[in-house]
Amino acid sequence: MILEYEEKELKKKSIDELTHLFMDIISKQNLVLIEGIEYLIDENHEQFNTNMNHVIETTTEVQVKKAFESKIFKSKLIFSKADRLKLFNKINEIKNIGEFMANRMLVYRIIFPDNEFKLRLSRILDSLKLISTDLSTAVKSIGTDLNKAHDICEEIKEERRKMRKIEFQLIHRLYHYDMDYLSRTFLYLKDMVEDVMMLADHIKTFSEYIQFLSIKYLIFK
């Protein structure tokens, strides 16, 4: 699913291109993670395991990260160097959260309580997919159109607000099931919802950082 890159090929790329490539890899990884949770909802455990393991085991981003770091420290872009590095690290943080989530989800085989829970969880995942893709577009727009990046981030923040509402509905539902749940199931589902929101929150914070960059660098009339 995710290609391996030649070191020489990576060295030829600019800082901007490496950032885009890294964002693509992490974004794809995110989609694999979300797809994995969707398999879990469909009770396709085998495919779920494959996806989660893929998220954990992928190391392509390490190559890109190394190439980026060696370039940025030698770069002559003085005034935007720190921001470029911070941006890259924020992308990397998505990968870390994804890995953390995948590891946590593999610890136990869950059975969902009902279809309504699955449905609502699917809605949150759809939103997560959307904001994840939007974030990738926003990051790629930083180099060419900061205004566009700013507007996309506004949409991400709005979508995240919607997700928060569904999150509370899910948690509320979880606490009010009639059946006396096994604490493992309860904990797993609660953690899963919270982890999904943790990723969404990071994307939201990232969006705010992109908006900060656009205000910092753009000179308005």
Binding site: D16, S141, K221
Partner: peptide, 15 residues
């Protein structure tokens, strides 16, 4: 700003 700086749209162009 009026003649030039506000016309710069992206970080690459600004850099």
């Amino acid at each position: 700003a009026k003649l030039y700086l506000t016309r710069l749209k992206g970080l690459n162009q600004i850099e």
